[in-house]
Amino acid sequence: MMQEILVAKNLKKTFRLSAKQRQIEKTSLYERIAVSDLSFTANEGEIFGLLGPNGAGKTTTLRMLATLIAPDSGDAFVDGASIVSDPEGVRSKVGFLTSELRLEDYFTPNYLFDFFSSLHNVEPQKMEQRKKMLFEKFGVDKFAEVKVANLSTGMKQKLSIIISVVHDPKIIIFDEPTNGLDVLTAKVVTDFLLELKAQGKTIILSTHIFSLVEKVCDTVGVIINGKMVACDTVKELTKEKNLEDKFFDLYVQEEGASYE
């Protein structure tokens, strides 16, 4: 029996609408619901995918899990730590990667690795060991003393991945991990995901790419308009038809006939 490591319970998040936006949408509501009553459970050692179209609330959900933003109501427990009452505890167990997390241009990969390791209380010996291993794996070792500003886009992305796992977290949250990467770099990333899984790590990722879900995920939650419309193992969901067709069925069911 698999151990539950991440439990999200009734997560809700709304954003305020500006006056102009209300006019455009012809609505009298002051808030837009980004995530509504979202619950799911991820088991230890699996890759859990959040699948959904743009604007469905995937990133908002992940940002709540990573304690970057707080839910309006509901809670989630990451390896026992509550995102509401113990955000620092959650942060020490979680590695979070999203394109909105930038690294300061002025510093070198070497410095940044040390800096973030010390913020995560990593022992110096373990830090050196992990730095060598990760830098070699992603080919950052040759650019260890080049300022981030002068790194290529792909190299920056790889460095961001490395920085997100400096503390060897049990749970890794990836927001659109392969977005904007070329096929080679994307492969390095998906291989890394599988490798982390092999090490017994739990991975939560968001994507709108069906093939990525089918390739790496064990369980998938489909989010449409902030609601979890289906959550099951990939095997179970794709029993009758492939994931793409299944997704369209769910979408029609949720949103009505058209998906334009």
Binding site: S92, R102, F116
Partner: peptide, 17 residues
């Protein structure tokens, strides 16, 4: 500046109060 460059979020997800 950190806000503008988006580097502050990287710090906010570390276990620093």
């Amino acid at each position: 500046g950190e806000k503008e460059r988006g580097t502050i979020a990287t710090l906010l997800i570390t276990p620093v109060k």
